[in-house]
Design a protein around this nucleic acid. Structure first.
Lengths: 211, 211, 211, 211
DNA sequence: AATGAATGAGCCTTCATTCAT
DNA sequence: GATGAATGAAGGCTCATTCAT
């Protein structure tokens, strides 16, 4: 039965997400999974392989890629907002612990062998999608390098709210923190901020192109 | 002699920055510092205290706060660019390993007891400074919450280039990576991007305020 | 099918011969035999039983006892030489790894439960045969104890070349080692050495018997 | 204090001698030495190093080389007997457990890294001494290779009584075994046997040299 | 003030074996 | 008859820490 294997993966993902690879012991995982200590070695060979499999499963579980109901008519501004809302729902999840995302975040900050796979199947496609949206806003012919810089600027704004949440908590007072760390509000702000920057870049670029 | 204590702090900062708290062993630090194995416990009581002291020293070493030669005449746009250039020089340091900054980055992502002190003496003042610059650009009377959102958007763009450098390396090809991950280029882009967004916000705000 | 059982025995013999009982793992044997991990316990109950069966098979494979074409006329000197040549071909086998013999050698040095069977069916008969040859050379009526001492002296000379081959390699230089560790040369030397000793013992014994 | 280190070496030698390297656990050694389990790692780094040091100490303890009160007048026959008596007292030691020798014997049969040192400081000198005695008996000018063969024949006779004691026990009945496995009796037999062979070789050699 | 020695808890891994199918 | 899954004990080793000097 694959039950034990699955329970191990869940327990591992959860614990690795919470404490990181080094600080997690396989005893802890096995206790949580209600499995024998030797089960990890039997199913995965070694601790690191279990970690890699857990990361793989983490983003699979999330559903590979979000589904948007966009048509050919959908304006890019709307697409950007949808995209950002999806991103921010991953960054700010007060209700669920969502170790799947936490594990991916850890992997992005300190990549191990599992990172390549993660980039191939999730991060890469998301990055490409964002670049397509940007391409619809910036003038045709904008170099890829410029689009990438804008994409990084947008993604950077999102990631901060997950990675630096504890620091943010120290920088602003509690009331403000609670009203701020909220998917709706943050989505709206980042959308406005980024759209303004993109439009400005588009204008500048046009002006340069047509003197 | 305080020599041993100092050598321990240096060795600890270096190693903690490179490997993180868990993955670093006291033996390793002592070997690097050419000190006795019991020296850490003698001077600092326990491993965690050594870590805290190392973090404290890391940001002290950096010189607390950058010094800008601004006058009352200096326009906020110039100030923002200077500020961002200083930030980016911390984010992108190809030449020096700069464990001081790496340690601070680690602490910001996974705060420990040392974080409060770090925020008080370095991150907080930097955040305040950025907010002052923003306040000069946005209309008088803009609520603090709005300023903070803009500050986060700006800081988020910067931090990405340090935290997600390995992922960035996987997303774009090597030639582009090398031409992109560069203080000048990134400073200019982030300045332009953020300034455009701020100006747009300023216009919108004025329009709302004066119908 | 008895195929698996047989493959296990071969793999076990080979591995036990090479590494000894303790250092050999069941997994290793099963991998080599391309059998399931539980096959050993299924077919043999436990590791030790597999070892015993492997030892049994080792000497069976060798053909129980050598066949000599001796007649009543064959002089004992010739018999001794034939016997020693057979012994030495087991001790010095450059060509084949011959795990069958290596396993028997191990068992003789550190006997386990398998040893009794080995002595009964192979070593004992060989020892008896040697004693018969000795009896033909020493005067009639020589006590069994004296014959046994001579047998031990002869066997001891042979065994050294297998058990202490690595030490021998360190005691003499490589050229000499290669010219020495050779069935023909060693057979001739041990035959001459032993025959001289036996004849001397025969003379002494006769002199004592007939004053 | 070096007390613990010494106790560990003693316990290790004893246990390794009894059970071999693989079958011995460091927990067992530490229990016997009344030391903490981490003491082995502290003093020797790893199990194998402890083993090597134990082997080194084993032959040091024995007193490097036996001391014989020989003069220039001492006939080689007397020297051979003394030499063999010393050898046999190592091979047949009913009274004392003498793990020192047992450990050396194990090392000779299955050499590890410790063997080279053992050969250099003990086995080699003993082998040289035996060859000198042989040189006094065989005619001047006998090639080294021939002397070595005789030395091996003599040493082989001795070693059998230690390595194959259990098999010997199965080949002859208990009464005979007890009367045989005895330093005096065996020394006398091996001396007579070998001396006869050497003298015969000397005569043959002379006859060939002077036709 | 400073250190070599020692400690005990705990790490990951591997073992021979047994269980349920 | 044969096997993949699972088990518990034990393996060597490393850890941060403390002790006696």
């Amino acid at each position: 039965m694959d039950d034990t294997r699955q329970r191990l993966l869940n327990a591992a993902g959860q614990t690795f997400a919470e404490k990181g690879f080094e600080a997690t012991t396989i005893r802890e995982i096995c206790r949580l999974a209600d499995a024998n200590i030797a089960a990890v070695n039997y199913h995965f060979g070694e601790k690191e392989q279990l970690y890699i499999e857990a990361v793989k499963q983490a983003h699979c579980h999330r559903g590979e890629m979000p589904q948007f109901d966009w048509t050919d008519e959908t304006p890019p501004e709307r697409k950007l907002e949808d995209f950002l809302r999806d991103m921010m729902s991953m960054m700010v999840d007060d209700e669920s612990p969502s170790w799947h995302i936490e594990l991916m975040m850890r992997e992005m900050a300190r990549p191990t062998a599992a990172c390549t796979e993660l980039v191939r199947s999730f991060i890469g496609p998301m990055f490409d999608l964002l670049n397509q949206i940007i391409a619809e806003i910036l003038p045709v012919g904008t170099p890829a390098g410029v689009r990438h810089l804008h994409a990084f600027s947008i993604v950077g704004q999102c990631l901060l709210y997950r990675y630096h949440r504890p620091v943010g908590r120290l920088l602003i007072d509690e009331g403000e923190f609670r009203s701020l760390w909220n998917v709706d509000k943050l989505t709206r702000h980042i959308t406005d901020f980024s759209l303004a920057a993109l439009r400005s870049a588009a204008r500048t670029s046009d002006a340069e192109a047509a003197p």
